[in-house]
């Protein structure tokens, strides 16, 4: 099953989102990797790298990011990982993308399918 890593500047946002996703699909491994190593606002490539390694059950990992250094540090973390092709950053809204991704991952979909579902969350209309 594809695993998820959540990277926001705020550790609380990542933690809160993980809680929401765990309720939606308890079978999926979701790791929150928001904030710096000291738990402050920011992001950490090392923290993200550790989370990727823990989230990977053999079917790959999708990383959801907010913006700025989240993206850069997620890319750096992937650079440090040997089996980098099984890790992808979804170009998706953080919360909506993560929710779509966890549903698809829970249905046993492939890495590419999970990424695709997260990306599609961009186009979901909230107000009709």
């Amino acid at each position: 099953m594809v695993g998820l890593v959540l990277v926001s500047h705020s550790p609380d946002i990542s933690k809160g989102l993980k809680k929401m996703l765990d309720e939606a699909q308890p079978k999926v491994t979701v790791l929150d990797a928001g904030g710096t190593d000291e738990g402050e606002m920011g992001t950490s490539a090392m923290k993200i790298q550790t989370a990727i390694e823990k989230a990977d059950n053999g079917d790959g990992v999708v990383i959801l990011v907010d913006f700025g250094s989240s993206v850069m540090n997620a890319e750096m973390a992937i650079d440090f990982i040997e089996d980098a092709h099984s890790v992808k950053i979804a170009d998706a809204p953080f919360i909506e993308g993560a929710y779509s991704a966890v549903m698809e991952a829970g249905f046993g979909k492939s890495l590419d399918d999970v990424v695709e579902s997260a990306v599609q969350a961009k186009d979901t209309k909230k107000v009709q």
Partner: peptide, 15 residues
Amino acid sequence: LLSKIGGASGPLYGT
């Protein structure tokens, strides 16, 4: 620098 800066400057100066 990469592990301690925290903001976007970490990966940038680290690189």
